[in-house]
């Protein structure tokens, strides 16, 4: 359970995958209810920062499970149903962000925070690209619409949230982890 190897999959990954999913679901759903800052047609989903953080802290499997299940739960709670391609896109987002885990030693160190944010941004691009492109088949939109109407606003919104909130979460986590350390 202890091992920090990137691809381990045991109780720890199950638990944090589930917790990440529940948090991501709750926060995504809460953003439907509370007014949030928005610019143009970009709306912000602060929950994304939580997903990226869980990936960075607990690895790619946790990121994948949290993103996939969390998005599914969030959609289900809002009464949306199941949009497999967006759920999978969110899963990919968390998974790529999780590749940062092995590189992070100190959650407070600037260099490590930059790594986490960097992998997070990569995850956002990969995940949103996947979801937007698959939307071409399921939603019948064309490439331009996918890139300009979906991909770009989603990436901008998620990136801004990640750059601002992920460092705050990591610094808070450093304090928590110092008190317990497994």
């Amino acid at each position: 359970m202890n091992d920090k190897s990137t691809w381990a999959f045991g109780t720890r990954q199950v638990v944090y995958g589930a917790i990440g999913a529940a948090l991501y679901g709750v926060f995504s759903w809460a953003t439907n209810i509370f007014p949030l800052p928005a610019a143009g047609n970009v709306t912000f989903r602060p929950a994304v920062a939580v997903l990226i953080f869980f990936g960075a802290a607990y690895g790619p499997w946790v990121g994948l499970l949290a993103g996939f299940i969390g998005n599914t739960l969030g959609d289900a709670l809002s009464g949306w149903g199941f949009y497999w391609n967006w759920s999978l896109g969110n899963g990919l987002m968390g998974m790529v962000a999780g590749l940062a885990m092995a590189a992070i030693k100190d959650f407070r160190a600037q260099a490590d925070i930059i790594k986490a944010v960097g992998w997070g941004l990569a995850g956002i691009v990969v995940g949103m690209l996947f979801a937007s492109l698959t939307e071409m088949i399921t939603g019948g939109i064309d490439l331009n619409t996918a890139l300009i109407g979906y991909f770009t606003p989603a990436v901008i919104g998620n990136a801004v949230v990640t750059i601002i909130l992920v460092p705050i979460l990591m610094i808070a986590f450093a304090a928590v982890a110092a008190g317990r350390g497994r």
Partner: peptide, 17 residues
């Protein structure tokens, strides 16, 4: 000082017991 925590000003609260 009322709760006997003087000296902890700069500690992160999340790291306390």
């Amino acid at each position: 000082s009322a709760v006997n925590m003087t000296g902890f000003e700069e500690y992160p609260p999340l790291g306390l017991s």
